[in-house]
């Protein structure tokens, strides 16, 4: 047992505000179009126990843009399927010469477990319902391209917050910088206890109240299967919580609409809203690359930038 190696990124909750600022500043200096081989010869291992499109390819492009070599290990088709423990897999990857491991795992705390037993940095690419720190950082980066700062920004986070690691990371990050956060969703997706995650969180069950006057609207993915066992049916959810063009009008004129993806048109948002000029959904994906370049650079140098 040890402390996580310097340069690890396990969660936003325990990250200091100045470290976040450092990472965002570093990301602004990264240009995926003009590769800087500052990580030449380094080995980045992408260990993915869950399917992922954008996070995985984004980390891969980020690593390659910095001159690093990447290897992808997925649960299917590896010894993980044969029952190897997470720690044994981690030790194996370390012996193969991994300099940093980027891990996506269905269990909360899995990257923290790895980091406690490895002498190389571990980057959490999403762990169960816990956190998704690189997503929160790229969301902050995206917001700051449209808004002067995060303080006093009115942010509505709408959807399945209970199951969402994106929401937990975003709430921790925005709260550290003084954003005014309103959470919105049915009780099954948003238990009252969510208010204890950070100081001064507000909860509403009425989507209009959440959106009214908002600077930022953050939507979360809603899985149809989860609605199956709930009091709120799919048509109920759509009618009560879907972001439509008319609901979007309640927000500030220059409000931006965010979503970590994958989006389901016609469920959490209307198709026209996804394509509206206020939507920054694809910009978030694009911003993922420089932000993850900054995260990887910090992993190797032990500091941002």
């Amino acid at each position: 047992m040890r402390n996580a190696a310097r340069g690890s990124l396990l969660d936003i909750e325990h990250l200091k505000a100045e470290e976040i600022v450092g990472l965002l500043n570093s990301a602004r200096r990264m240009n995926p179009q003009k590769p800087r081989p500052i990580l030449k010869g380094a080995r980045v291992l992408l260990l993915f126990y869950e399917p992922s499109t954008r996070t995985r390819s984004s980390f891969e492009i980020a690593a390659k843009s910095l001159g690093a070599m990447t290897t992808l290990v997925q649960a299917s088709g590896s010894s993980i399927e044969k029952g190897e423990s997470l720690l044994d897999t981690s030790y194996t990857l370390r012996s193969l010469g991994a300099d940093v491991i980027v891990a996506r795992h269905p269990n909360a705390g899995a990257p923290a477990l790895m980091a406690r037993h490895l002498d190389i940095p571990v980057i959490n690419a999403g762990d169960g319902m816990h956190e998704h720190p690189s997503q929160a950082l790229l969301d902050a980066y995206t917001i700051l391209r449209h808004k002067r700062n995060l303080k006093n920004l009115q942010v509505a986070i709408i959807g399945d917050i209970y199951h969402s690691r994106v929401a937990r990371s975003a709430i921790h990050l925005l709260s550290k910088f003084g954003s005014r956060i309103t959470l919105c969703g049915p009780a099954e997706f948003l238990p009252e206890v969510a208010m204890t995650l950070a100081p001064d969180l507000h909860i509403t069950r009425t989507v209009e109240d959440a959106i009214r006057g908002a600077d930022v609207i953050m939507l979360l993915r809603v899985q149809k299967e989860r609605l199956a066992g709930m009091k709120t049916s799919l048509p109920d959810y759509v009618s009560r919580y879907q972001i439509t063009a008319s609901r979007l009008k309640l927000a500030k004129k220059d409000a931006i609409l965010m979503h970590p993806g994958p989006i389901i048109r016609g469920l959490e948002l209307a198709g026209e809203v996804a394509d509206s000029p206020q939507s920054v959904i694809l910009e978030e994906v694009r911003n993922g690359v420089p932000v993850r370049m900054a995260i990887l650079a910090r992993a190797f140098t032990g500091r941002a930038g």
């Binding site: 169960g128 238990p191 206890v193 204890t196 995650l197």
Partner: peptide, 12 residues
């Protein structure tokens, strides 16, 4: 146990 800590840790 269900409560603030389980919510924060993302554990059921």
């Amino acid at each position: 146990n269900e409560g603030a800590t389980s919510f924060r840790l993302g554990l059921r």
